[in-house]
Simulated assay, not measured.
Amino acid sequence: MNGQRIAILSPTPDYEENWSHIKADYAQLLGNRATFIDWTKAEDFSAFDLVTPLLAWGYPRNCPRWFGLLDQLENEGVTVSNPVRILRWNSDKAYLAELDAAGIPSVPTLLSDALDEAALDDARNSFKTDILVIKPPISGGADGTFRLGRGDAFPASVAGHRMMIQPYLPTIAAEGEYSLFYFGGKFSHSIIKRPAKGDFRVQEQYGGTEEAVSAPEAALLLAQTAFAATAAITGIETLAYARVDLLRDGDGVFRLMELELIEPSLFLRFAPDKGTAFAEALLSAV
């Protein structure tokens, strides 16, 4: 394994969020096998045994380049930590509808091809709630995500755009969002993330916090059924890494929020082995 060369696709130098501690985790675990490459300028992969998009943050802001890169990796037969087929599928959150159709309970979602007030009114009637969350289907880090009550100003930045509409679930603030982490198909650790008071976004850049938690049995079961459904849909059974984001609805039923298979923060500081199983799973993908 010591001779394996790994390209870690990374954000552009001007990316505004600095998560250097995450990069440091990967550098420590993988040592001199890892090379960090600006994903927007990555072109030649002949020197690498494995490519992983673990730090390719910002790809939703340049979708043509992202999907072009995936095509290149696939056409050149480059070994990628999670296969290109599943990266492409996971890039657009429309995959949630496929999982829902396969029987995986997810947060109820309507997709608007051109968001307007009428679409929001229809969603409020459908979900029987006044408070909605809207987000782009291709997004990350809560970019372009808003919580809208009835009468709130319509965000001009997303008017007419393809957007997902979901009911706001108060359990996100009352309890929090669970994240379960799997390496090589095996459960590693879990955390619970909570938004800052008055907010609904759990990301650290918005004041969210996280702590270790024992994964409830119902959450573990939902994660496993989501993996099985994903394998049936994509034909990909083994994943080097995966994060499953879940929360309970008002009836206490766990629902899938997102299946993160591209560039999730893995919160390795909460892993019992601090990331050893992750590194082994990544190297085993070669």
Rank of each mutant, 00 (worst) to 15 (best):
G3F: 06
I6P: 00
A7L: 15
L9D: 04
L9T: 03
L9A: 02
P11N: 05
T12W: 10
D14T: 13
Y15T: 04
W19R: 14
S20P: 01
I22L: 14
I22A: 09
L30N: 10
G31L: 13
E43V: 12
E43H: 13
D44F: 06
S46C: 06
A47D: 15
L50V: 05
P53W: 12
W57C: 07
Y59T: 07
R61Q: 14
L69A: 04
Q72E: 12
E74S: 14
N75Y: 11
N75K: 14
T79V: 15
V80M: 08
P83K: 08
I86E: 01
I86L: 03
I86K: 03
R88P: 05
N90D: 07
K93Q: 04
A102Y: 02
P108L: 02
L110S: 03
L115K: 01
E117M: 06
A118C: 07
L120C: 09
N125Q: 14
I134L: 00
P136G: 04
P137M: 01
S139L: 02
A142G: 04
R147K: 15
G151Q: 08
D152E: 12
F154E: 02
M164K: 01
Y168F: 15
T171R: 15
I172F: 03
E175A: 13
E175Y: 12
E177S: 11
F181L: 14
G184D: 08
G184T: 08
G184W: 09
G185R: 11
I191P: 00
K193N: 03
R194P: 01
A196P: 01
A196Y: 01
G198E: 05
D199P: 01
E204Y: 13
Q205G: 02
G208Y: 05
V213L: 14
P216R: 05
L220V: 08
L221N: 14
A229I: 08
T230I: 11
T230L: 13
I236F: 09
L239S: 08
A242F: 09
L247N: 01
R248Y: 10
G250K: 11
G250P: 03
V253T: 14
V253W: 09
F254G: 04
R255P: 05
E258A: 09
E263T: 04
E263C: 03
F267K: 09
A271Q: 06
F278Q: 09
A281W: 09
L282S: 05
A285W: 06
A285Q: 05
